[in-house]
Design a protein around this nucleic acid. Sequence first.
DNA 1: GGTCGTC
DNA 2: GACGACCAACGCCTA
DNA 3: TAGGCG
Length: 376
Amino acid sequence: MPGVRIPSTARKAPPTVALKTARAPAKRSSTTITTRPSSRGPAPADLPDTPLSRAAAKIAKQFGTKIRGATASELNALEAIKQEGDWEIGGRVVHLTNLDKLLFPEDRYSKRDLIRYYVQVAPVMIPYYSKRPLSMNPHPDGIHGKSYWVKDKPDYAPAWIPTFRYQDQKSLKDWILIEEVATLAWLANHAVIDMHPWYSRQDKPEYPDWSVVDLDPAEGATFKDVVAVAKVLKSALDHLQLEAVLKTTGQSGLHIYIPIERRYTLDESRGFVEKLAHMIAELMPDKVTEVWEVKRRTGKIRIDYTQNVINKTLAGPYSVRPAIRAPVSAPIAWKELDDARLRPDRWTIKTLGDRLLEVGDLFHDALTLRQRLPAL
DNA sequence: GGTCGTC
DNA sequence: GACGACCAACGCCTA
DNA sequence: TAGGCG
Ligand SMILES: [Mn+2]
Ligand SMILES: [Mn+2]
């Protein structure tokens, strides 16, 4: 599979549309992306004997994914590195640092644990990130420390990590694309706990293929309320004959992704979710708020349609979240909304392997379905 | 997190 | 080698 | 247009 090609020369922005995106004139040097090393899965003999690696390999085979995860010998090599050292992973060399630094102190999960999770889940996770520019939110001092956003690929990042050059309203940036397991290793080492991919792909950035519905409980609202709102949303989507997939956020709410044809602008996608949110708010005025200010949302759920904007992102599927227990944004079946054990942080980096063995990849429709949005 | 300047 | 300073985003919403 | 928000 070829790497993503970055246009080295640039087209000017379409002159008619103000504020719109433009491919960019030269910045630094133009990039040629080298082909990745072989990306076939590990030979069965070298498949790590862990639930997560076994589940990921099984799911990758089921969907014909060519992306590989860490081999058993690679995982062994990761354990053998002291605090810092070069790690050979997926045919690349990644320099790892502070491996035993506790990013999740209550759970005593270190950066090594974070890396170990991501390089195993890679075959299941990467298809949802491939060709999608990535926002990074590093937490170098752990989940209780200060974090910061990074969108432009740092100069010190490895040259083999492919990028997508994009000019937004403020500046020209080279956005990281996750196409192989070694990139996840570099990101996790960089203390990027959660991964935020765009809803659009690099070759058509203004036309998302996911409309996202972000359910955010305000202070005083319960997760039960979130579930109740999600169920009503599901009936509305059924009525509109739209399929959608659902996942935990790992924090407090739920995320719904509606797979769409790449024929709507982000404005149109946002407009659709806004109208949908408005309908639900009218149906459940005691549970749903449309208020913007956090302080005035008390006790209610906000259906946040404003996520559907360029450069704005949610943590993607299988992303770890910076919270106690190291929860993972885990896809769930709609029926699981009836399960009393459901929690937004039900699955973590410890338990996602067993979960995947049980239910497989419940988000796959997000990759294959392409629907038209009905008028509302 | 990395980098750079300084002790 | 150890330190401290510095850097690392964006776009819409509302008043 | 500044500050809130995610
Ligand atoms: Mn630091
Ligand atoms: Mn949210």
